[in-house]
């Protein structure tokens, strides 16, 4: 009985020590993950800045006209189409759209 009590106390002590050691170990792991998160966050921010710079309208317009040889649409080439909710009636499968006629939007380059 006495032996069991001693073993119990030693076990409790070992458990306590193990718990303390494990807390410190988990603490290091948490800090490691935090550092990793910060690094990934920085990488994400860097990529966001790059995406934002690459999608600047000025750069896109320049690339479209100079690299791809695109030109602004000529009068009449832009047609606005607005889709209207398709009618639920059976027998008319075509959805209705509105097209603005004779639109002249873009100037000649």
């Amino acid at each position: 009985m006495r032996l069991l009590a001693v073993l119990g106390i030693i076990g409790m002590l070992l458990l306590f020590v193990w718990e303390r050691v494990d807390i410190v170990r988990v603490g290091y792991r948490i800090e490691q993950l935090k550092t990793q998160k910060v690094a990934l966050q920085r990488e994400q921010d860097e990529l966001r800045v790059k995406v934002s710079a690459l999608t600047a309208p000025e750069r896109i317009a320049k690339a479209a006209t100079e690299k791809l040889g695109m030109i602004p649409p000529q009068p009449g080439q832009v047609v606005m189409v607005r889709a209207v909710e398709p009618a639920p009636a059976v027998g008319d499968p075509s959805p209705e759209v509105h097209v603005a006629k004779n639109e002249r939007f873009w100037r000649k380059p």
Partner: peptide, 19 residues
């Protein structure tokens, strides 16, 4: 000219068409 096109502001009564 460019802003109206970009915003999709139509100048005239839309023409009804079906797709």
């Amino acid at each position: 000219e460019q802003a109206l096109t970009y915003l999709g502001i139509s100048s005239q009564e839309p023409m009804k068409v079906a797709l």
